[in-house]
Amino acid sequence: MTPEDIAYAAFGATPRQSDESDTDWENRVARTGQKIALAVSNPETTIMRAIARAIPAPDDKPFRATIVDVRLEKRSKRTIVETWSEKNASADKIVKDEHGDDMPPGHEIIRTPANFPGTIDALVCKELTTRAIALMGHQILVFKILESFQKNGNTLKSRVMLDMRDLGVDDRFEVIYRTNARGEKIPSRAELV
């Protein structure tokens, strides 16, 4: 095993128990490393499918935008993150929302992976949704893939968020808050001021 393999295996293994010898712990770490090696050697494992999906095509560059809304798309079990970018605001580009209606200039949507219970996509969806709500009114760098789907016999593509990086508050926006059922103030929407 390489040093990197050992590091990944040690990260995946639980800490050494107080009654565990150095040799026993090293053997447990080595066994975890074997399990990782077996998982990544088979392209059909959940781990390898997740890794393959997370590597975007070389021409699929990340883009910069501000989060202005986060909402559930019930029919697809995805979260929709509505973004605004200055680049798109100045372009003569008509973008449709999830209902087929024209969006305001500069606004676009990107979906999270579908939230099917028990899948890695469900974990990614939950994490990205939580982060997107917390980053309402922030500029982010969005990492995405294009996912094909069929609609009315046509093949369409949708942008699916893989990850985002916080670039800080966008002071051109004001975050509007709402109170949830527990009485907590949470971000509801960001509006251009």
Results as ranks from 00 to 15, higher is better:
Met1Val: 07
Pro3Cys: 03
Pro3Tyr: 08
Glu4Ser: 12
Glu4Met: 10
Ile6Asn: 15
Phe11Gln: 11
Phe11Asp: 10
Thr14Gly: 14
Arg16Phe: 00
Ser18Val: 15
Asp19Ser: 11
Glu20Ala: 01
Asp22Met: 08
Asp22Gly: 06
Asp22Cys: 10
Asp22Glu: 12
Asp24Met: 09
Arg28Leu: 03
Arg28Ser: 01
Val29Thr: 00
Ala30Thr: 13
Ala30Glu: 11
Thr32His: 09
Lys35Ala: 13
Ile36Leu: 13
Ala37Gln: 09
Ala37Gly: 02
Ala37His: 08
Val40Gln: 08
Val40Met: 10
Ser41His: 06
Pro43Gly: 02
Glu44Phe: 11
Arg49Glu: 06
Ala54Gly: 11
Ala57Gly: 14
Ala57Glu: 14
Lys61Pro: 01
Lys61Tyr: 11
Pro62Gln: 06
Pro62Asp: 09
Arg64Ile: 14
Arg64Val: 14
Arg64Asp: 10
Val68Ser: 00
Val68Asp: 01
Asp69Arg: 13
Arg71Asn: 06
Leu72Ser: 13
Lys74His: 12
Ser76Asn: 09
Thr79Met: 07
Ile80Glu: 00
Glu82Cys: 08
Thr83Asn: 05
Trp84Pro: 03
Trp84Leu: 12
Trp84Tyr: 15
Trp84Ala: 05
Trp84Asp: 07
Asp92Leu: 14
Asp92Cys: 05
Ile94Cys: 02
Lys96Phe: 12
Lys96Asn: 07
Asp102Arg: 14
His107Pro: 03
Glu108Lys: 11
Pro113Glu: 04
Ala122Asp: 08
Leu123Met: 13
Val124Gln: 10
Val124Glu: 07
Val124Arg: 15
Cys125Val: 04
Lys126Asp: 14
Thr129Arg: 14
Ala132Phe: 00
Ala134Phe: 04
Ala134Ile: 05
Leu135Ala: 03
Met136Asp: 05
Met136Glu: 04
Gly137Met: 03
Ile140Arg: 05
Leu141Lys: 13
Lys144Glu: 14
Ile145Asn: 14
Leu146His: 13
Gln150Ile: 11
Gln150Arg: 15
Gln150Tyr: 07
Asn152Ser: 10
Asn154Asp: 15
Lys157Pro: 06
Ser158Cys: 06
Met161Lys: 08
Met164Asp: 06
Met164Gln: 07
Arg165Ile: 13
Arg165Leu: 11
Asp166Ile: 06
Gly168Gln: 00
Asp170Asn: 13
Arg172His: 06
Phe173Gln: 03
Tyr177His: 12
Arg178Gln: 09
Thr179Gly: 02
Arg182Asp: 15
Glu184Met: 07
Ile186Thr: 09
Ser188Pro: 01
Glu191Gln: 09
Leu192Trp: 01
Val193Tyr: 07
